[in-house]
Structures are given as C-alpha cells and as structure tokens.
Simulated assay, not measured.
Amino acid sequence: MKQIFLMMAGLWFSALSFAQQFSGNPVFPGWYADPEVALFQHKYWIFPTYSAPYEKQVFLDAFSSDNLVKWKKHPRIVDTAAIKWAKRAMWAPAIIEKQNKYYLFFAANDIQSNEEQGGIGVAVANKPEGPFEDLLGKPLIDKFYNGAQPIDQFVFKDKDGQYYMFYGGWRHCNVAKLKPDFTGFEAFEDGSTFKEVTPEKYVEGPFMFIRDGKYYFMWSEGGWTGPDYSVAYAIADSPLGPFKRVGKILQQNPAIATGAGHHSVIQIPNKNEYYIVYHRRPLSEKDGNSRVVCIDKMEFDDQGYIKPVVITNEGVGARKLK
C-alpha cells in the first residue's frame, strides 16, 4: 500500500513539475483581450484590455514574467482618473520605451463621430508598471481620417529610428509619422499626415515587425465576437507598404477555443524564435467579453512565410531572457 501511495505521489509531483514548465493557456486568470507584448528590463510584459462592458473598461492592468510561465499582475497602471477626457472603453494598449521613459498609447470612449470626445491618447511613466500620467491632457487623434475610427493603435520603430503609428477600426487602417516627443505627427513628403494603407479584409488590430529585412504587417479580420475572428498578414519592402494579403495564420480551433485574434508578436533577442500573444474565447463562454490571453509559438517556412499557428491548451515552455 505504501509503495502504491509513493508511486501515486511521484506521478502527481511529476505532473505538477511538468505543468510548471509550461505557461498553460490562458497564461493568467481574468477576462483580458487585445494583448500587447514587450520586452523591458529583461522581462516579458503583457499590456491587455480589461475585457468587460464598455462602462467598466476604465483602467488597464499589466503583467510581467521572467520566463513566460509565471506572471505577476500590476493592477491599474492607468485609469480614467489620470486621463480626464477618457470616460469609458479604454482599450488596446500599445507601449514603447524611449530614453528611460515609457509611453503607453490607448484608445478611449469608442467615439462614433468627429463630434464626440475621445480617440487615441498617450500616457507616460518612469516604469513599465506605471503609474502613467496623461502626456497631452487631450487625445492624440480625435477625428476620423480616411474613414478609420481612431482605435487599435500600434507604434512601430523603424530601422532608421522613425516611429510610425498604425491604427484604425471600421475596416480602415492609417499610418502616420510620430514626432520624436510623441506629442503629435509630422507630415509625409507629399504633405499628408495620415496615409491609408488598408489591406484586403482588414478590420482592426494592426501590428508590424521586421524579419530578414522584410516588413511583416499583420491585422485582425472578421467580427471580434464571432467565430471568424482571425489574424492575417502581408509582407512588404517598406513600412508604408503596399501590403498585399498573404493569408490567414491564426484562427479558432473549435476543439480548443473560439474567436482567436487581436494579437502581438515577440522575438527572443538575436534568435529566430517568435511567440504570438493573442486573445480567444473559452469553449464554455458565449459572452463577447469573456476573452483570455494566450501564448503560442509562431514559426516560418524556408521562404519566410508564417506557418499557420497551432493554438494549444499547453501554451509555451519556460523561456528565460539572458
């Protein structure tokens, strides 16, 4: 009897040890969506939307990890008390570090016209976990340009140091050149400020990274509450495109989860090792806001095309940064 007990205990310990080596999906508890992943201070960071009815989306949390497996919550890094013009629907954060300052871009109020107050704002802090303060005291973008709702911003630093903002809902995507202090935008050579770069089937959630000198532009398509929500991409020679859709690389698996989309990507420094961070809806949930943050591997074929992502319940193995 004692031997059986010891054997069972050993199997339980082995299973527990195995589980601790993988992140599991979701990677942390709670309803969260639209995750932005970043590397700061030799740690992984995820900045998601708090997924709730718009009137309750009045703050943002952050999460940090040494190894992709164990995550620490940093609650309320910014909220509507710090952003006076934001009243509701604070979502889809994007973050960058410059000269030891952290700039957090976010959308608020879900404006439906140029007559409403809201749009895309920017906050600043001395640490990635905040607290963040409003940089401008007003939105950075508060109007509809080229038909793009001012939401779902992503800030991209090009090889020459220029920062671009990609953003847009309502099936339109714009790009603009940010000023070095992030207080506004600079005009392009043709005098325009907001250029439309909308690829085929684009809906929202733009993201960009560089690999082997090529610009990979990614976005979400389909309806965010529906089974067709997914991620597609294009490859271009310039951050301004043109972006010709290659295909879909992330979508639901009805055996695991539904509504997989609105993602970001992280590369392990100096390694051909990539992870995709995204949200999805558990099979047990029907509410549109019941979304969780997950991580899976993202790989490429010999031609540089992204392989379809296999979404898992196990998540990814522990991966410390050097």
Rank of each mutant, 00 (worst) to 15 (best):
M1G: 10
M8T: 15
M8K: 14
L11D: 12
L16K: 14
F18K: 08
F18T: 13
Q21M: 13
Q21I: 09
F22D: 05
P26I: 01
P26E: 00
P29V: 12
Y32V: 01
D34R: 04
E36C: 12
E36R: 11
V37G: 09
V37L: 09
V37N: 09
L39Q: 05
Y44E: 09
P48Q: 02
Y50D: 06
P53H: 01
Y54Q: 15
Q57H: 10
V58N: 12
V58P: 12
S65M: 15
N67W: 05
K70T: 13
W71L: 00
K72W: 10
H74E: 10
H74T: 08
A81M: 14
A82V: 01
I83F: 07
K87N: 14
W91H: 06
A92W: 12
A94P: 00
K98C: 07
K98S: 13
K101R: 14
F105S: 10
F106P: 04
F106T: 01
A107Q: 15
A107W: 12
D110A: 15
I111P: 08
S113C: 06
N114E: 15
N114S: 09
G119P: 13
V122P: 00
A125Y: 00
K127L: 06
E129G: 07
D134I: 04
G137M: 04
K138L: 15
D142P: 11
F144Y: 07
A148K: 14
Q149A: 11
P150E: 05
Q153C: 13
F156H: 00
G161C: 00
Q162L: 12
Y163W: 03
Y163P: 05
Y164S: 02
Y164D: 02
Y167D: 04
R171Y: 11
H172S: 10
C173K: 11
V175D: 00
L178C: 10
L178M: 13
K179Y: 07
E186R: 09
D190R: 01
K195M: 12
E196R: 07
K201C: 14
K201E: 15
Y202L: 08
V203K: 11
E204H: 03
G205V: 06
M208L: 03
F209V: 04
I210C: 13
G213C: 00
K214Q: 03
K214H: 06
M218D: 04
E221W: 02
T225L: 08
G226D: 09
P227W: 15
Y229W: 01
S230E: 01
S230N: 08
S230L: 05
A232H: 02
F243P: 07
F243I: 03
K244F: 06
V246R: 15
Q251W: 11
N253C: 14
A255L: 10
A255E: 11
A257S: 14
A257H: 11
T258R: 08
T258D: 04
A260G: 04
H263T: 09
S264K: 02
I266D: 04
I266L: 07
Y274F: 09
Y274C: 09
I276Y: 01
I276R: 04
I276H: 03
H279W: 02
L283R: 09
G288F: 03
G288R: 02
D302Y: 15
Q303H: 09
G304T: 01
I311A: 12
G317T: 08
A318E: 13
K322R: 14
